[in-house]
Design a binder for these strands. Structure first.
Lengths: 366, 366
DNA sequence: CTGAAAGCGCTAACAG
DNA sequence: CTGTTAGCGCTTTCAG
């Protein structure tokens, strides 16, 4: 009864007593075909449980309605928020997503790129794992729209969408300074990591901007941006008797680690004086009691911008290529922990800028 | 120079001065072809930047080397951990993954299922969004291996892999009882949600098992399993003057919410008495200071089991169909917060059981 | 060892 | 309105 080979358009045609062309037409340009015939076709389809073969259509049309995605790791919640937004924008247009992981290795990234090319994806979204990017210039890629997310690659003419990291850090330093801190430490990771580097630069720039002293002993930027490293870096900083009370911490994992270290090892008196500002505002933010200010990246918006850009290119519009969209993050002031809101004018300005950031291509923030 | 149409096997054949059949052979069964010819072909491939067209191969072979995935939401970190493990197992075998979201709607799940069928995926992994499952019996699906993750559907003969929720709850209740608590409250969600229901049942079973009193006023199982609801349910429980001190909380979001509520609203004296046990042990667990015990699901292992099962079916082995793999979660005792380790024998037993769980198909836990 | 030709399932001229 | 046919890019007999 249940034959094991799938039913094709041919089977439908035979059962409906028409030609395969008619079946095809009945299923697509339904207005050309006689009502009665279409009904017969549809009945046959129903009876046989026919599903159309997208692979065959893809071959014919030379397009797969598929977007390839390469992430450094799939369990990265940030990137998956972006992917979620992508799906929401692309699925209604008939696109599916093939998702792959580069395991943060450039070699693996190249391999996955090759696989996606062979699978004829119509477009690609890549969160690059390194700062190398020659493989994105592959000839095959010249026909495939590509959007880089979160990290741009130096000198590479490719569309990209990213958070304005430096803007976020500037705001954090400004807020801490505003609250009365002039000595502000930095806890981050190896500047070779794109976001680590951007945030370190932002920090240095902002400190200079506000004429604040940069004390090398308290500018810690080694190793991975992990919870463990966050613990250790803060421990190291606090081991110096004249450490600053305020720290900017470059990401959520390190922030978590630093907070845990502080809560577990610093005496009440000292603890009360400690103040953090950090990147990313996640579900457990209310437990990070030392945090006064946080930069909250707009992942959904990033996904939407990526999708819009991709769809534009897929539609054949290359007018403003390469476009680098830089989105302003939201700034959270955590009053419950002692964060001091920006002044009225300041705040208003910030909001305006943020609004511009939604749609415009911003490159500077002053 | 850069023609816009992709280079095909034909172009390679022409340049190499051979037939397309020879190109195909040179690229695949490399031993049949003369060394010299192969070299010529490979050179042409290089020169033209040829990439083979997987779509055409898929059509020919009637298989796409693609696995379709349906998740209730892509930003669900649990599921993405599973997907990450899947990628790690499947990618080396040449499989890619098409990932889609059902937005936790059965309707959308059906739609996505249809799309994946049309795209000729070789297999599917679905985390069902509801308890309905008739659509998984579709005729087209009879040829496509399908593995359900995290939730089984009543009476549906389909392979599945899930965490042994009840075992986890039993262990939590046992641990709390062991520590001296006989009154234990329950904070969870609407039992219609699969995990919420399983955990509620586990709680009721375990309480009966240990002859502990179930007080309806403190068995709260309404609404979504969200942070907000966690806050509110705990608040409600604590508003009764004779509330228990120990609570089992059914998932991480509610746990987070409950903890935040307690820290912010309960006085020191009361706070010290409060003890939680909960599902899921995440990066921020060290901040959940009321938590003595946690059930830590083995997502990686789940992914590996799913991959193994899928590959088995793809290899044509349907021997033990339908197979329901139930994996024992790891039990965390958080001593820093006051958790009391299981007794020696108990602990040993537990570890043994957990080891068995890695490989065996466990259905009961006593 | 290599080439010619059929065919995977579908669409789109082109004729009727 | 409908049928015939060529062809999307590739693999694979079947002959040489």
């Amino acid at each position: 009864m249940d034959s094991n080979i799938p039913v094709t358009i041919k089977d439908v045609a035979r059962l409906a007593g028409v030609s395969i062309a008619t079946v095809s037409r009945a299923l697509n340009e339904s207005d050309v075909v006689k009502d009665q015939t279409r009904k017969a076709v549809l009945e046959a389809v129903e009876k046989l449980g026919y599903n159309r073969n997208e692979v065959a259509r893809s071959l014919k049309f030379r397009q797969t309605r598929t977007i390839g995605i390469i992430a450094p790791e799939l369990s990265n919640i940030f990137f998956m928020e972006v992917v979620e937004a992508l799906e929401r924008c692309l699925a209604p247009k008939g696109y599916s997503m093939i998702i792959t992981s580069s395991y943060d290795s450039v070699e693996e990234e190249k391999r996955k790129l090759q696989i996606l090319i062979e699978r004829n994806v119509d477009g690609m979204v890549v969160m690059p794992s390194g700062s190398e990017g020659e493989h994105f210039l592959s000839k095959a890629l010249s026909n495939i729209p590509l959007v880089l997310v979160d990290r741009r690659i130096k000198g590479l003419k490719v569309d990209s969408v990213e958070t304005d990291n430096r803007f976020g850090v500037h705001k954090m330093i400004q807020a801490l300074n505003n609250e009365g801190f002039s000595r502000i430490g930095f806890i981050g990771g190896d500047p070779d990591i794109h976001t680590a580097g951007e945030r370190l630069h932002g920090y240095l720039e902002a400190m200079a901007e506000h004429n604040l002293p940069v004390e090398d002993r308290f500018v810690l930027h080694q190793g991975a941006m992990t919870q463990l490293n966050g613990r250790e870096q803060l421990k190291k900083a606090l081991s110096e008797s004249d450490h600053p009370d305020a720290f900017f911490i470059a990401n959520d994992s390190m922030h978590l680690g630093a907070t845990i270290h502080a809560i577990e090892n610093v005496q009440e008196q000292e603890l009360k004086k400690l103040v953090f500002a950090s990147f990313d505002y996640l579900s457990y933010a209310p437990l990070l009691k030392l945090c006064h200010y946080a930069v909250s990246q707009q992942f959904e918006q990033i996904g939407e911008e990526v999708a819009a850009l991709l769809l534009k290119r897929l539609g054949g519009d290359w007018e403003d290529f390469p476009k680098h969209v830089m989105l302003r993050p939201e700034i959270k002031v955590i009053k419950a922990n002692g964060g001091v809101p920006f002044e009225q004018g300041e705040q208003g300005l910030m909001e305006n800028q943020a609004d511009e950031g939604n749609t415009a291509d911003l490159c500077s923030y002053f």
